[in-house]
Amino acid sequence: MSRLIDVENLTLQFDTDEGRITAVEDVSFSLEAGEVMGLVGESGSGKSVTAKSLMKLNAGNAIYGPDSRITLHLEDGPVDVMSLKTDTEMKVVRGGAISLIFQEPMASFAPAISIGEQMVEQLMIHTDFSKAQARELSIEMLDRVGISDASTRFGQYAFELSGGMRQRAMIAMALSTKPKLLIADEPTTALDVTIQAQVIDLMKDLVSEFGMGIIFITHDLGVIAQTADKVAVMYLGRLVEQGTVRDVIRRPAHPYTRGLLAALPTLEDIDAPLTPIPGDIPSPLERPSGCVYHTRCQEVIGARCANEIPKFSQVDTDHAAACHLHDEQGETA
């Protein structure tokens, strides 16, 4: 495997009427080609904003931190995403080497433009195909994601397709330019459970076939357990734990991850009460000092949690957590 993308010290703030809001703070991770990474957290944790940063797609009032670096490793050499300025320069991360699938397939297709037209448009922007070639490839892609009668569907509009069909079409469109990285922002949340499974299977097949990396954003650890190779857990704009899926789910090291796992319903013991994490996610306007999670954490170990930002420390070979619990273990060991 070769390195696909490096995100280093990504910090992102928004200038709003209420002041400057920190949405993402000091986030670093990397992804290999062919690897699936789950990005997990509650709504408002900054997952989607992080993902959109990779395409510089955040709103005009976004301010990236000066140390933020995103490097995309392509065959023609590395691309420094932060330095991309013009629309032409940004094509490579917008639908070229990176594609994005949104949570709501209905809303992400333009309602008055046919699915085919939108697919062809994207291919015309990113490839030197003729219109006829683009059309042919689009129909082939629709067929490939399991849409029957693809040439008819090509001329149809999003409102004429069922929910699962739309998300398949969205995947077909996203993959048509053969991106190296696919970002899927809660791609199955709006779908029925049975369709969810189909779409997840489809995505897994396509990753191995196309050999690309996927960043899978979700709040559903169950979906992550099935899909991802590794997982990064996010809380209030910060990463709190990273590691292989197996490690993180079997031996969660951060109290927040433990809380998320405890809040999942299990089928083994349907009478067991769910234990939600107490409290609400704080307003981004009042970010807690120190460890951002300390206001809700049940394992606070003293003033350090409120004063000092915990650094990532290894808990296993491929498993790290940003928590003072593990600092001390590291110190005492």
């Binding site: 709501e104 809303a107 992400s108 297709f109 939108q118 990113h126």
Partner: peptide, 12 residues
């Protein structure tokens, strides 16, 4: 959303 989605596909 469809406008953001189009921007994400490189339409500009």
């Amino acid at each position: 959303l469809y406008v953001t989605a189009a921007a994400a596909r490189g339409v500009s």
